[in-house]
Nucleic acid binder design. Structure first.
Lengths: 202, 202
DNA sequence: GTCTGCCTACCAACTAGTAGGTAGATTCCT
DNA sequence: AGGAATCTACCTACTAGTTGGTAGGCAGAC
C-alpha cells in the first residue's frame, strides 16, 4: 500500500499518535493514570523516543490540552456558521457528546476530567484547563444571550449563570454516564434540560 | 493543654486519621494522586504501618468510599427527619456543598471525582462508587416524586430524569468551581437551577 | 554534513507491598 | 495474684517493579 499521502483523518505522524494515545489514557484515568511506558506500548515506539517529541510529561499534556482548546474553538466557530439558531446549537453540542459517549470514542471531556483533579495538576496544565472552561463558558453565554434576545431560548436568570449551569449539567451528565456504565444516561439527563430551555414548537 | 479526652468530632484513632488523610488526597488528585508515603507523612506514622490497618491501597480506598456512602445514608436520613419539605431538602443539600466548597474543607464530592476516572479504578472501588451514585440518585428521585405530588416542586420530566439532571448539575458545578478557582461559582450555578424547580413563594 | 527520528542502556526516585522484630496492653490459665 | 500467651500497633529494613527523564549512538533524509 502506498504511503504517498497520509490519511486526512488519521495522521501517520508520530507526535500526533502520541497525543492521541495520551488523550485516550487521560480520558480513562486522568493525569496520573498513565505513564510514558503505556504510551510507548500502544504507539509502538520506545519510551525514550517520546521524550524526543515531548521533552516532559508536562509538555505533552500541555500541548494536548492546548490543541484540545484550539479544536474546540474552530469546531464551535464552524458549528455557528452551519447551525445559527441557539436551540439547534445547544442540541448539536449535546448531540455531539451523546454520540461520543454512545460509541465510546470520547466518553468524557478531557478538560472536565482534568478540572476535577486540578489541584494535583502541574500549573502549566492547570492554566490550559482553565482557559478551556473560560472559552466554553464564554461561547455558551453568547449563545444564551442571543437565544434570550431572539426569544428562542427560555431563560430565567442571567445568560452567564444559565450558561454555567448548562455546562455544569453536561459535565455532570458525562460523569453520571460513566458511573452507571450506561451510555443512555447522558441523553436522559440532557433531554429535560434542553426541554426547559427551548420553548415548545410542536 | 490537657489531652484527657479526645475531641468528640475528630477521632484520635489512627485508622480514622489514615482515612481522613486519604480522603483529602483523593479530593485533591484522585486515586492515583497519592501514595502510602504521602499519607504516612501527614499522619506521622511509617509507611509500613499503614499496611497494618489497610493491607492494600484498594482496601483503604474501598473502606473509604464505603464509609462515605454510609455517612451519606445517615446524613440524608437525618436531614429528612429535620427538614421534611422537598424544596428545603434540595436547598439544604446544595447549601451543604456550597459551605464545604467555600471553606475549602471538602471542595468536591469524593465519588464524583472517582467516577470521572472510573475506568482506571480497581473494580472493588468502582463498585462502591457506583453504589454511591445509585443511592444519591434514588434519594433525589424520591424527593422529586414527593415534591411533584405535593406541588412543592415544579418538574417537567419524570422524577428520575429530573433527579439525575439535578445531581449532574451539582457535580458539574463542583468541577466548574474548581476550574475557575472561584468558590462562589457553585452557588451561582445552583441558584437558577433551584429557582426553576421551586415555585415562587414571594 | 547536519538534522530528524528513533534506538539501547542507563539513572535516581518512587511505587505498593513484605519480612520480621519490639514494646506494651489484654486476656487466659492456674 | 502471677505468669504465659496473645494481640495491637508500630517500627526498621528490604524487595521487585515502575516512574519520568538522560546520555549517547545510529540510520536515513534534505
Amino acid at each position: 500500500m502506498s504511503m504517498d499521502k497520509p490519511s486526512n483523518t488519521a495522521p501517520s505522524n508520530t507526535a500526533d499518535d502520541i497525543l492521541a494515545a495520551a488523550r485516550r489514557f487521560i480520558v480513562a484515568g486522568g493525569y496520573n493514570g498513565f505513564s510514558y511506558a503505556d504510551i510507548a506500548e500502544v504507539v509502538g515506539i520506545r519510551k525514550a523516543s517520546i521524550h524526543h517529541h515531548f521533552p516532559s510529561k508536562v509538555d505533552l499534556v500541555q500541548t494536548l490540552v492546548r490543541r484540545y482548546l484550539e479544536d474546540a474553538v474552530t469546531g464551535m466557530t464552524e458549528l455557528e456558521r452551519n447551525v445559527p439558531g441557539p436551540p439547534e446549537l445547544l442540541r448539536t453540542y449535546t448531540g455531539f457528546w451523546a454520540q461520543c459517549i454512545e460509541d465510546a470514542s470520547r466518553p468524557i471531556c478531557v478538560c472536565a476530567l482534568l478540572a476535577s483533579e486540578l489541584p494535583a495538576l502541574p500549573p502549566e496544565v492547570a492554566v490550559e484547563v482553565r482557559a478551556y472552561f473560560q472559552f466554553l463558558s464564554g461561547w455558551l453565554t453568547r449563545v444564551f444571550e442571543r437565544g434570550a434576545a431572539q426569544g428562542t431560548l427560555t431563560i430565567a436568570a442571567a445568560p452567564r449563570a444559565e450558561a454555567e449551569a448548562f455546562m455544569a449539567t453536561v459535565h455532570g451528565a458525562m460523569i453520571s454516564a460513566r458511573a452507571y456504565g450506561d451510555v443512555l444516561t447522558f441523553g436522559m439527563i440532557l433531554a429535560p434540560t434542553l426541554q426547559k430551555l427551548i420553548p415548545a414548537t410542536d
